[in-house]
Design a protein around this nucleic acid. Sequence first.
DNA 1: TACGCGTGGGC
DNA 2: TGCCCAAGCGT
Length: 298
Amino acid sequence: MTLADDAITWFDQNARDLPWRQPDTTAWGVLVSEVMLQQTPVVRVEPAWRSWMTRWPTPADLAADPPSEAIRMWGRLGYPRRAMRLHACAVAMVERHGGRVPSDLEQLLALPGVGTYTGRAVATFAYGQRHPVVDTNVRRVVSRAVEGKPDAGPSTTAADLVAMAELLPEEPARAARASIAFMELGALVCVARSPRCPECPFEDVCAWRRNGSPALEGPSRKPQRYAGTDRQVRGLLLEVLRHATGPVPRQRLDLVWNDDVQRARALAGLVEDGLVEPLDAEVFVLAGDAPRVPPQSL
DNA sequence: TACGCGTGGGC
DNA sequence: TGCCCAAGCGT
């Protein structure tokens, strides 16, 4: 039995029943779930995904609405640039692919917001192709079970893709199952802190365990601060704009943060990123929310 | 490669 | 409102 076999057997008995794993889920549904899951936990994604798919069942449905609606529907999932990119992605799919999610990996990777992980995940989970799909969970599982190290590097490398590719079964459908099984194992059992090794199908063969489960030596990664950062200020500004029904005067935005310099920088950043549009120097809206100027009638 | 980018929950 | 972590991406 290979690691992939053991992982699949475990997955068959322990997989969570997530809506985007239902067999009738469209490629668009898979793509939306993958983008929402970028850095956001499953429990928060689940209701958001259901609402999103009900409102926009196809890429063309989303592309027909302004980005502001996507940003609002995104709610508090975090990193709202993802909502912008998902909207831009829908527009690109309408323009380039007839409103369909492409199955070709190169075409997927060319879409806004679709990177190494997401492109491979869609090609694999929506279209059943055989690609290594490597996320933070897979990196940690492979790092421990195969390489005997307590944790993986901070981002996916070409070497990570090769390492995972070597573990995949030949048959594409089974390779896809192996990838989702490794991910689930990393999410539920081989977790970052306090892994549940007694529940792990790799317990007897795990190289990290055989090494005595050594702890990480140096400081793992830089702690990500939030309080007092531009990120926090951007979040506060955007929250006001999300809930606004009309144009928002600068005065109202001034209330969310008292450091003028930082607040101005954060707002400029939101404009720069295309999340916010200035109607003039003193009035702002979410991107795409600018009042439509009716055609001049004579 | 390293950094910036939201938000919330577990401990 | 401390620290760490969560199915990354774009620059």
